[in-house]
Amino acid sequence: MTAAVIATQGLVKRYGQVRAVDGIDLDVRAGDVYGFLGANGSGKTTTVRMLLGLVLPTSGEVQLLGERMPKAARRVLPRVGALIESPAAYGHLSGRANLTLLDAAGPGGSRRTRRPRVDEVLEQVGLAGVGRRPVKAYSLGMRQRLGLAGALLRRPELLVLDEPTNGLDPQGIHEVRDLLLELHRAGTTVFLSSHLLAEVEQLCSRVGVLDRGRLVLQDDLATLTAPTGATVVETPDPQRVRAALDGRVLSTDGVRAIVRGADPAEVNAALVAAGVPVTGLALQRPSLEEVVLAAAGGSADRVDGTEGRTRR
């Protein structure tokens, strides 16, 4: 088993009567790209803040890179890069000045290598040519890039990112995704908190789903979206599929039939023998969205209904 990079045991945060985070056992391992999913208000942000020692847990334990948080914050956090909710910077200073001040504000960033490191991360996030412009003149996307640059400044072993593509245009989203994958290949573990299922599905190898403060699901993405043992048949005439493969058809709609049987070739042969036109064949896999909605149980409406709204 690989080493746990983030491990929490029975993590609880109570605000008055509300249990914002209710007994979470996170398990993020070295080399993971971990997708932390949940509706806004499900406790994602509170959990991220507890990981980083900003919010103190009511009970339970947080271990980051093998050390107890928040006690070991001074040793651990320099090895962690974080983007917490929206990016933030001093508006009257340039992006470069902001990064320099941030780097100087804590341990683990050598003064000698500061300039080259700042140059390097600005290059990485695509802000190298921005010059001395103050941050208040930046667009939302540029601020997001600057926030990401701040997270990368000390070449962290673990990146904790909350909605890193927020405010970016499609091109920017693509760039950030490539950057994260590149960092991951270089050995960085990524903890990505998001409510964008598509983003998580494209990037992540492991997924945790938070629903009203509880971790209702935590598994490898490949396991969650493993084939169900059924085959999807695309055909202009689903009713003839039902006639040909009596009893094996699980459901039909206008252009599709779901057939029991994990071997599309066998299904195809049977259909062709019966003279049913087949335009497409695939193993049925649940989409991440279906998995999440099923796991989040009764609050499916909440996941849909609150999506896209940002909580401040």
Partner: peptide
């Protein structure tokens, strides 16, 4: 300004 959380996560202590 939101910079407090970044300072403390830096960690500034």
């Amino acid at each position: 300004a939101g910079t407090l959380r970044y300072l403390l996560a830096r960690p500034a202590g």
